[in-house]
Design a protein around this nucleic acid. Structure first.
Lengths: 167, 167
DNA sequence: GGGTAACTTGACATCATGTCAAGTGATGCG
DNA sequence: CGCATCACTTGACATGATGTCAAGTTACCC
């Protein structure tokens, strides 16, 4: 909070006139970023795809390429989720939105009859959602040194292998 | 530290006579748990398997079933990794050991010629290691309400789908 | 009897978050 | 013009966790 106040050329206490808590500030920041980065437009491509598999790949690309933009604030929210229920709820809610995107892609696969045998839609969504987690992006990009392009391509392949019944 | 001291029927300051820092205590705890739970024996089964795919499944089972035992202390170490370099290093070292297990399973697949086409051993190891992360276990077990058995079976399938070239 | 090891007690430093009270300065309105 | 209001500042303070330090106490062994 001190650092942010300094950067905003405001006193530390002045910051609390705008954001009552650290969590509130971070949440406001994610909302602002969503506006600036136009998340809706990003996800439009994945919704437009007719083909289930194309849609899956498009969603991986759209969300996968959005992660780096919110990663900083996401990290902060995840870190304080242990001690701050407000932060935990805010982050969980955002991740729930991602889950809906995952569920939609899974539903498209199901509609087309290419969802892997013996995999319920819900189970598939859980799995896909987990694959697309910010933590996994972190580990592959920062822990393993993958490029962003590597990450996207490999996750597209992985998601397909995990969810699609191969002929 | 207060709570631990209380549980150990010792004064808070007395604890520091045994463990200089919180991180040191947690690291000692993981080492002690490894001994008590006999990690080596657990992993032996996965090393013995002749067949690459069997070995993969055995490793997923062994590590997957070990995660719940170290999850508490792992959580604590991960949480403080942001602010405490000592804790970060300790946890990273332990995860590196898991990575070696992953690499060995991948090597077995490669030896048998069933590693997916166009996937280098290193890339495959990165991927497998990421799939088997404690965070993913957390999300599936606690976030999605999967049972431990669900988790193991599904991860075995997923690992196979991700790494093995299907005939 | 004396020394040592393990532990206790109480006090204190630091650091981040958050709160509160008492100001200050610019802006706009009647 | 005068005055109220809003955004902000300053300084002080509470809380809670991690560590540190000095001065004991207790038990045990040689």
């Amino acid at each position: 909070m001190s650092d942010i106040a300094k950067a905003a050329k405001i006193s530390r206490q002045g910051l609390y006139l705008h954001f009552a808590t650290r969590a509130e500030l971070l949440v406001a920041l994610t909302r602002w970023m969503d506006e600036v980065n136009d998340v809706d437009r990003r996800l439009a491509a994945s919704r437009q795809a007719r083909d289930g598999e194309t849609r899956l790949a498009a969603f991986v690309e759209a969300w996968g390429n959005y992660i780096p933009m919110i990663h900083g604030v996401g990290r902060a929210l995840m870190a304080m989720s242990d001690s701050d229920a407000e932060a935990a709820a805010a982050w969980a809610e955002r991740m729930q939105a991602v889950r809906h995107g995952c569920a939609a892609a899974v539903a498209a696969l199901k509609d087309q009859g290419v969802l892997r045998d013996g995999l319920s839609e819900e189970r598939a969504t859980d799995l896909f959602w987990t694959l697309m987690s910010v933590r996994n992006w972190e580990q592959l990009r920062q822990g393993c040194g993958w490029t962003q392009a590597d990450y996207v391509v490999e996750m597209q392949r992985l998601a397909r292998a995990a969810l699609v019944e191969l002929p």
